[in-house]
Amino acid sequence: MTETENPETIRYTADVVATLGLFVLLIKRGWPPFEGAWALPGGHVDVGETSREAAARELREETGVLVDPGDLRQIGVYDAPDRDPRGRYVSVAYAVEVPEGTIAQAGDDAADVRWWPLSDLPPLAFDHADIIRASIHAQ
């Protein structure tokens, strides 16, 4: 990097593929970008927490679903430069199978929450369809 170049700002996030049998938990985004679109629960990693801890916290805040961070299985790291229109976001994605009878309800930043059949997903925000596919193939 030369002296005239500015380093790129990178934001660190975590996403969660929470499944219940053949269903995946999605939130309807209540804010831009992709306001009104379906997406995986997730968000920024806070100061002092790991991406795994952030994933469990975001899942709880956005859907009310509680999981132990240790139960989250890492799927991969998603860092394509154009994956988010707000700028450069690097996300660590996790998967977790939740117990039968798990109830989800829209919380922090989520306009709605729903269990969607993996075989009939709506159009998804960001690269979340790729993350879900990777999760399914990793099982």
Rank of each mutant, 00 (worst) to 15 (best):
M1C: 07
E5W: 06
N6Y: 09
P7Y: 02
P7S: 10
P7M: 05
T9M: 12
R11M: 08
T13A: 15
T13L: 12
A14W: 03
V16M: 02
V16P: 02
T19A: 09
G21V: 02
L22H: 15
L22R: 14
L22M: 12
F23Q: 15
V24C: 10
L25T: 03
I27D: 07
W31G: 00
P32A: 13
P32Q: 11
F34I: 02
E35S: 13
E35Q: 14
W38P: 06
A39N: 14
A39W: 09
L40A: 07
P41Q: 02
G43W: 03
V45L: 04
A54M: 05
A55M: 07
G64E: 07
V67I: 14
D71C: 06
Q74H: 10
G76A: 05
V77H: 05
A80E: 14
D84L: 02
P85Y: 11
R86H: 04
R88Q: 10
Y89V: 15
V92C: 02
A93E: 02
E97C: 08
V98F: 00
P99T: 00
G101H: 02
T102L: 04
I103A: 15
I103N: 03
A106Y: 05
G107R: 12
D109T: 13
A110L: 01
A111V: 01
A111T: 06
A111Q: 11
R114A: 12
W116I: 01
W116M: 14
H128E: 11
I132S: 04
A134K: 12
Q139D: 12
